[in-house]
Design a protein around this nucleic acid. Sequence first.
DNA 1: CTGAAAGCGCTTACAG
DNA 2: CTGAAAGCGCTTACAG
Lengths: 298, 298
Amino acid sequence: MGYVPSEAARSLVNKRSATIGVAIADFRDPFYTNFIPGVEEVTISSYHDLFVASFAKDHQRERKLFEAFFEKRVAGIIVAGSLVKDAYLSLENHSIPAVLVNCPSYPYSVSVDQFWGAQKAINYLISLGHRQIAYVHQGLHSDTAIDRLKGYRAALHDHGFPIEENLILQGEGVMGSEEKAVSQLLTLSERPTAIFCFNDMTAIGIMNTLQQRGFSIPQDFSVVGFDDLDIAAYCHPRLTTIQQPVYQLGYRATKMLFQRIQGNNDLQLEVIEPELIVRDSTAPVGVPVGGVLNLSKG
Amino acid sequence: MGYVPSEAARSLVNKRSATIGVAIADFRDPFYTNFIPGVEEVTISSYHDLFVASFAKDHQRERKLFEAFFEKRVAGIIVAGSLVKDAYLSLENHSIPAVLVNCPSYPYSVSVDQFWGAQKAINYLISLGHRQIAYVHQGLHSDTAIDRLKGYRAALHDHGFPIEENLILQGEGVMGSEEKAVSQLLTLSERPTAIFCFNDMTAIGIMNTLQQRGFSIPQDFSVVGFDDLDIAAYCHPRLTTIQQPVYQLGYRATKMLFQRIQGNNDLQLEVIEPELIVRDSTAPVGVPVGGVLNLSKG
DNA sequence: CTGAAAGCGCTTACAG
DNA sequence: CTGAAAGCGCTTACAG
């Protein structure tokens, strides 16, 4: 460990730091657990450092982070879960390229088709005979939340079913209990038979809270998540969900970013089709208690 | 978004960047999911940026990261899961302070008492009547892995039980199936009745693999994890585990780092006592199949 | 091909 | 108190 050059001096001359900034919504969200390794996979073979930071799902903090990236004159930016989105366009003017994830309205993006994913989930529940299907989100602030709601609405509408606004509820947004949303669901005059959740964390919280109140999944309620986190295969019951290829999302966004850094700035929009992963948290409507369990055991 | 100063120029003058480097072993490890927010909690109220990066459990990459921190002349470093440890001492000579997590041999550290945690787990299993207790680790490269093994050995020894080396096995180290370790366990002439796992991820993999082979937890095997990740309360059965207060670990390490940055360099060693969290993956040895379930239901 | 000089954009110590 | 100058440690264009 003899002489180590000063990056500050080098960056001053180059007017650019050999660093890629990654802005994510929240380290607590297991979504990023596999996303960042996808980004690393691309960066590791370049001579760039990776600078990961979160903005805690907060507009203000995202703007601050955004400014920090500018101050550092990073070579490029990957953003996932952005709340300010088009703000990154102003960095483009200073020739700092950005690629957004799950934000197809930005000119450079890699996204999973949220609308289509939600539709797939609802179509599947409908195919199982469900008609009263709730949607539990975590607030409708992000594009993804809104697009999934649109997909939910579209699927019901396409099948000629009415959309009941009191079946659309807000959950907590952290892994844990979902007392409030579950209470609201249970007091409805016509109880849903299925619950489509914004993501796996919410789904696991909903399942857990229902189980604590004595209900069984999927006998009493079918539950569908979104993401297909590692946990989805290990929770109880194993969760039916819409898979987002999270590692791929990170990998492809970063590949695109490096293309842009090397000067290839053709507008680009990559969209990945999500897949439905059927596990044990969903069942045909009206199956008698225990019926499904016997089926899978026998 | 008018004039934004260049951090590079400022850092050149100050010979220091207003950035805290955080080195973690692996973004895939849910351990860090709550660790980094603990670090953020302290940093957010300072004017420092946070630079999080991983070294993928690789010596070489940790050294590279370490050099990158030096090149950037960061104001200080937090390291968790370090493989090179004392290497950070050379940065201290260049007045870049570091605080290591779960590495009590470094002069500045915040750690959970790994030895004591493992002892607590084994003592509990012994109190339930278990005598044949396996330990499944992920490789004995880190201090934490070695200290937990020592605690396992000490607890058995203190009770006058022999230590059988073929009960000490290596697992995969990623969330998923643990075919190899489970196969080895099942072919032992004297099968264990309890399995102490290096961490929750391993425990969940072990439970899942055993269940797929038709065994029930905790009737056939008691399983104990380490960490108390969020998932531990939502897997099936809910996992008995040793709790590491991960958020606290991040928070306190960063508090210590800022003290050091402000010039308070008294040697410091903080040790947190871990707690045993009893859930449903452990039961008294020899309880007939179904017995425990009836117990908890009735 | 080699080596001294200019300059990147700031901060700070100093002269006026 | 204000403002011009020096200098942080590199890279690069240029003179020799």
